[in-house]
Design a protein around this nucleic acid. Structure first.
Lengths: 210, 210, 210, 210
DNA sequence: AATGAATGAGCCTTCATTCAT
DNA sequence: AATGAATGAAGGCTCATTCAT
């Protein structure tokens, strides 16, 4: 039943299917046939809409990145002050809608692929860059520039590490414990930085932190 | 040039070649032919010595794990006291002989494969378990049991995160900065733990920490 | 030249080609490439339609068995009385459309493969069982049950022996002499059985036997 | 431990191993490595002694044929009169030392291979020819020449059929029932022939027949 | 006499991609 | 818009055979 205006629907179905299949397989070793079947169409149609398997992968990666960006903006909108905004940025990484084994596993696969695939690399760099500048921008208001970069590096590494451990089911922590670990790292680093800046943390903020 | 006693030589050459090729490719998408060629032999011989591609991968993974274990023991032998031993354990992860892009990338690939491959999973669990118990054993002498586990989790996640960033060349830090980041995390957590235990850190020990 | 409804055509072509190639080779040592080439398509398409070489072999065997079953039914439909039906069953085995060197040779290969291949074994057992019960059912009306089974065994062995000799071109007899040999065996056994039962054979029936 | 005069021992071990492996596999799909391993030596040595896999197969086939010829002569030596000699010839085919599943299966494989392999064909023709002339020679003393050939054909087909059924475990009869079936066929054919020659069978002989 | 070492050739199977309809 | 049909290219694995020792 050929219909008009199917393109966005088909493309979306394929992207979801791609993420699901990659997540299930735990690697990019999935066939176009698998993806197309899960999306309820023929491989020929999948190629019609994306041109190649690689493009499908990139679209799926872009989809994940875009969703992450949107979540970050949403979380940030509700946050007040730099410390809350930092927590919001972290929370966006562990949002319950995306911090599911299959999405995380899929994300990890793309992450790894970015080592050698220029397209994937470019997308990943956008994400990495945004995360870093978002963190630094807010950290900058709480500590000096050198510290801000150092802390941002630590936070980013921690997030990646927690992601990979989640993908491997090696993570015995739930979503809140996971986020808490990162927030706690921030608290400590900022506390240290604070002391180094002779600018003790506001106790009231500490009281509300996880 | 048929000689006797070639088996260990060939096996070793294949393992090195496997790690190199996987590292170069950034994934397990390498052919037996590539590996065999780099190791200077035919694919048939590679199969003769390892039986299957999978076994070759597992042997390479085991090789990396074994080397890591040996380094850990060596570092630990020179360490005095729990704090130094913790630093030693961390240092073993970032030893200059192994913390090279290709080895790290290869490690990451195995790490990812462990998601679904039982053999890889088993090997990884041994590594993960050892790292955790090594950390906890020494942390236990500096803080309570709950903290020890929590800190070990954080350290492990941090190491993983730094590894993945190293593999992606996203890590602008050198080996010492990388290690320093983890040591610093330990210092902070133990300092916090110390305060929480009303057991302030010994200033003399702090003086020797990196 | 992609058309729709090709599946039955392709499958049939592959089955015929399989039988031809096996018959020509005299064993199952034929490659998928040979079969596919003879059937006028790529090996990939052959796999697309049958999944594996083994399935192709089984389909070919099933094809031969089915054809034999159909011939048996056709011959039986025209037969009157148990003695004629016995002859009909035997005639079905030596039908000129199938008692050709290549089909016989192919049949023999499957027969032999049934020794260790469960799928082939199952198919063969169906054939063997049907032949035996068909024979016994009609023999039962001419002699006692023990004799019926014994005679059926002899007839079946004789058919198999004549088949193998046909496959090896060791059989200097034509189709009618071959059938005659089995019919003659039946006559003798039933004559003997008749005498043993004090029930001499009806001379009129003998007159119509070949 | 290289020894002199090993050649016949090695060759024999390889021949036995070949028969065993083929019998176990139910086809000629056995590797030189399997055979060599079972014979307790390297594949290189197997090639050294036989030159090629094909030659090993032919040697094994020749071995079976030779053993059969020897048994026939032995059985014949003890037989008195044409009828006993015919029974002796048949008995040689079902000798307990050789009528075992693996030998029979191996025999069948060679039999089948003779379809297209000239060497195997030549060997088989020798066997077939000897059996036929042995049978005809003795039958000739009990019936006319045409009958003699016809009966020899029937007996040979029956033996082949019983062999193949033995190889497939489709034969529910033991060795004596199997032989009895062929002897019985002979009795019937000779009885018929006798009647046709107005030369009734000697009742005393019948009394001793199985 | 004996073997470990080594490989070329080949086979089954998979899969991304294209095309006619 | 959609798909069944079709294939070239490649990859993992096996194996008979050779060779230096």
């Amino acid at each position: 039943m050929p219909k008009i205006g199917m393109e966005p629907i088909r493309r979306n179905a394929l992207i979801e299917a791609t993420i699901d299949e990659i997540g299930k397989a735990g690697s990019l070793n999935v066939t176009v046939a698998q993806i197309a079947r899960r999306a309820g169409m023929s491989t020929a149609l999948a190629h019609h809409y994306f041109g190649s398997k690689d493009q499908m992968f990139l679209a799926a990666m872009r989809h994940i990145m875009t969703a992450f960006g949107a979540r970050t903006r949403a979380e940030l909108a509700a946050a007040r002050g730099p410390r809350e905004r930092l927590n919001a940025i972290i929370a966006a990484s562990f949002d319950e809608r995306e911090f599911r084994p299959e999405v995380v596993s899929s994300w990890l696969s793309f992450y790894v692929q970015a080592q050698n695939n220029p397209g994937a690399r470019r997308l990943l760099n956008v994400y990495t860059g945004r995360l870093h500048s978002n963190l630094v921008f807010n950290l900058r208001q709480l500590t000096n520039i050198a510290n801000a970069h150092a802390i941002a590096n630590g936070v980013a590494a921690l997030i990646d590490g927690l992601y990979i451990r989640q993908a491997l089911h090696n993570n015995r922590m739930d979503r809140f414990q996971t986020m808490g670990l990162v927030w706690d790292y921030l608290d400590l680093k900022l506390g240290q930085a604070g002391r180094m800046m002779k600018d003790p943390l506001d106790p009231s903020r500490l009281a509300t932190s996880p």
